[in-house]
Nucleic acid binder design. Structure first.
Lengths: 110, 110
DNA sequence: ACCCCGTACCTAGCGCATCTAGGTACGCCC
DNA sequence: GGGCGTACCTAGATGCGCTAGGTACGGGGT
């Protein structure tokens, strides 16, 4: 639909997905919708970014996928966090907090 | 020296530079040092990122540069904010705040 | 005398995440 | 029958930051 006013900051998508999956397994499309709803569309998740990101994260061992079935019996790919992914989530959360704090020092200095 | 643990988030460098120049004109090298000192090296500004960024921002009319002299009489390029740059700073600050708030909703939901 | 470090500037080319813009398939509703 | 929503996928472009080089000069150490 309306394209995102500005692209997502590089690196934030992984964190967003990791955190979303920490709530429980979800399929790709639902991850995107959940992030957009939660942020009232401030953060848009384009499918062209999402699926390659899911593939990368799977290769890194942060998430795994299993085939499941939608309510209509259609095959859907369910993603879930691995132990490694949980550790990565903690690391990336901490890094994000550090970046936000550092940015705040520059943007609103004493 | 020690390379940055993680690259700067794409798009944040412009905001950082804009905000630094809002304090007053500075030359490129000093902009980088100021950001690194202020954030205690959490945010590293590599010169290979900085100078192309300054060039881009100048092309966009956000900043302008004039030749000046260092204390030792050597030519240095002094950058300063334009009126357009000041507006851009406000816009990017607001956007950054919105992104941080949106990220917080996903990372630490009610 | 020599070398390294710090200041100050610059560039080519790489890596990589995100986006654009398409595609498939199926079910529902008007 | 056409369009919309769900759900998945991909090729290629774009654009930013980084790596790794380069220039030039002055000061400090040995």
């Amino acid at each position: 639909m309306t394209p995102p006013s500005r692209p997502l900051l590089q690196g934030t998508l992984d964190l967003l997905v990791l955190r979303t999956l920490a709530w429980g397994p979800r399929h790709g499309y639902a991850i995107a919708r959940w992030i957009e709803e939660t942020t009232h569309d401030v953060l848009r998740v384009e499918e062209g970014s999402l699926y390659p990101a899911l593939y990368r994260m799977q290769k890194k061992g942060w998430i795994r996928s299993d085939w499941g079935e939608s309510e209509l019996g259609k095959p859907i790919r369910i993603y879930s966090l691995t132990v490694k992914g949980r550790a990565e989530l903690r690391a990336q959360s901490a890094h994000w907090d550090a970046v936000v704090a550092a940015m705040a020092k520059v943007l609103r200095p004493a």
